[in-house]
Design a protein around this nucleic acid. Sequence first.
DNA 1: CTGAAAGCGCTTACAG
DNA 2: CTGAAAGCGCTTACAG
Lengths: 362, 362
Amino acid sequence: MRTTIADVAAAAGVSKTTVSRVINAKSDVDAATASRVNQVIDQLGYVPSTRAVGLARGRTGAVGMLVPSLSWPWVAEVVQGVSDALEEAGHGMLLYTGDRGQESLNRFATSSNGQSYDGLILVTPEHALTYVTELHRQGMPVVMVDDRGLGPDLPTVATTNRQGGADAASHLLEHGRTRPFVITGPMVYGYSRERLHGFQEVFAEAGYPIASDRIVEGDLHHRRGRSAIAAQLHAGVPFDAVFAHTDLTAAGAIAELHRHGLVVPDDVAVVGFDDSEVSWHTDPTLTTVHQPMREMGRTATRILLASFGGTPLPTAPVLLPTTLIARESTLGLSAPLPPEPPSVLAVRRRPGGRAAMDEVEV
Amino acid sequence: MRTTIADVAAAAGVSKTTVSRVINAKSDVDAATASRVNQVIDQLGYVPSTRAVGLARGRTGAVGMLVPSLSWPWVAEVVQGVSDALEEAGHGMLLYTGDRGQESLNRFATSSNGQSYDGLILVTPEHALTYVTELHRQGMPVVMVDDRGLGPDLPTVATTNRQGGADAASHLLEHGRTRPFVITGPMVYGYSRERLHGFQEVFAEAGYPIASDRIVEGDLHHRRGRSAIAAQLHAGVPFDAVFAHTDLTAAGAIAELHRHGLVVPDDVAVVGFDDSEVSWHTDPTLTTVHQPMREMGRTATRILLASFGGTPLPTAPVLLPTTLIARESTLGLSAPLPPEPPSVLAVRRRPGGRAAMDEVEV
DNA sequence: CTGAAAGCGCTTACAG
DNA sequence: CTGAAAGCGCTTACAG
């Protein structure tokens, strides 16, 4: 038999009300009484039942989190950030993965209606977007981590994709590249367009506009990097750099360049996007644009928790800065090896650089 | 104001008891009554409050999951497997990451005492092991996914590390390699010892015992692959193959071999362990021993849920089979490219091979 | 086949 | 400073 507040009350010779007051650190309790109750609590190892507290208070103390497959490393990073921030605040996290499609979302919908959580954090919930928007309209606090530029009508934390593209371009120009080949992400996503535009703009301003035969739409996959490079080489359009909108595609590009006897970066410099684990394991290591996924998770969480306290949710997207990470695929093999692959370290944090674009009280 | 069971009862002109019966599909309800109640439920969009149900029933319908950092891709895979299986069964998942050390574990301990979940799934909870073991002794159903060979006194799902090592050895022998260099994981972990022993045994039986100067202890990191290869080349101990206990280390080994002008696999064949995403992005792609992380998550979940239904938890570890995945780093560049990197596919599943070692009713 | 009532373990006015 | 009582939204014997 689990020990309840009644057991504690009996053992301490007080009422349940008083025990409740002590637990929740209400002010008006006699010091002696309080210490006696606390003693009993320790002795009995009493911990309040979360669900009883939740029922009585009308809050759950938990936050729901809906993500697509955790097999995507950057999704896992976001979740880790959310988990960190939630834990700091003493909240629990109910995790839902949309991995199994519509069926997953039905499950999710059921539990959200069951008031299992006080608020919701989403990562690119493509199929659930209308459902969640409706949920939000009905009063559920929602914050979305938007990596895709879906641009929904929801409070959103995103990243400076355009600036990231611009930084990649500047970096390549600094290293003497003037004829880049761009392999974008799916153009239906806002982030692909932003990264491309930022990149194009810098090259155009420098006097090297990028012709359309040096831009091709990709799909984020490794294999696409290979096929795009093979096709471009076959077409005979010369290029001295590759900007891929995802590290996976960049990795494929490097592999294919090698197949054709080209040296990276001497013949062709390569820049990816994301700073995912892959960027440490290509050879040469990959220069890439870091996205602060973990920070996005933390920020989204802080915004959500603040809303529980009455702070209104932001109406404009909160943008976190990207950072260019220069490695061997542009600097050459002489580049110093960084200390250690990040994913195997206990804590992973980067300096950050500029402050968030949008001032939000978090 | 949220609609409750009382609202439904009033609107349908029945008692709360009857509504409850309909919701939970108890048999003895008049068909007409039931359909009327269901209509009202649909009309009002009524969904029972999870926490009220939990309080009344004494169960939560949720499972707790404690993992180290989600930044480790294989951890994320296990979580995904757990999520899949939980969702199928209509259970929720409360996720705790031990990423912030002792403080994380304290939070975790508090919520577990608060009866926030009915059972617990753990991934290598090194620091929490004694706490969790105690929890289990007090009656909390616990299943551990043990990738480290911690060999605790808890119901466990693990993998056939010894056989994985043996398979790696057989594969290298088949490809004419007789002088392997082994970079192990930390030898404090059972899995390192098992992988090594399985590997050694096969080579010894084939007449090529492995001298101790061709075995070095590693740390799972990329950088260690580089330094180990550099040192071995410097020492002048010849080798025609590398068996690394983790893909990251194997990737480092490949990179370092290239630095020294050696060709993989012509000069040196390389085999990793895990079949993590990295294995698709080394160049050449990496032959490795697949660990069924997702399946381990699913299996652990099924075992736990079965225990809720009365099936006792298994006393011996449940072992899932590893599978050797041959790629270019042993087969050569002529090896056909597989369809697509797994991590970006929606669903990731492998044939599986042999059946689980331990027969458990799941 | 159906309902009134007690109970799950807390919190929170209300009264003293 | 403290307690009795009602209530959070369900489920479950018990009785009919």
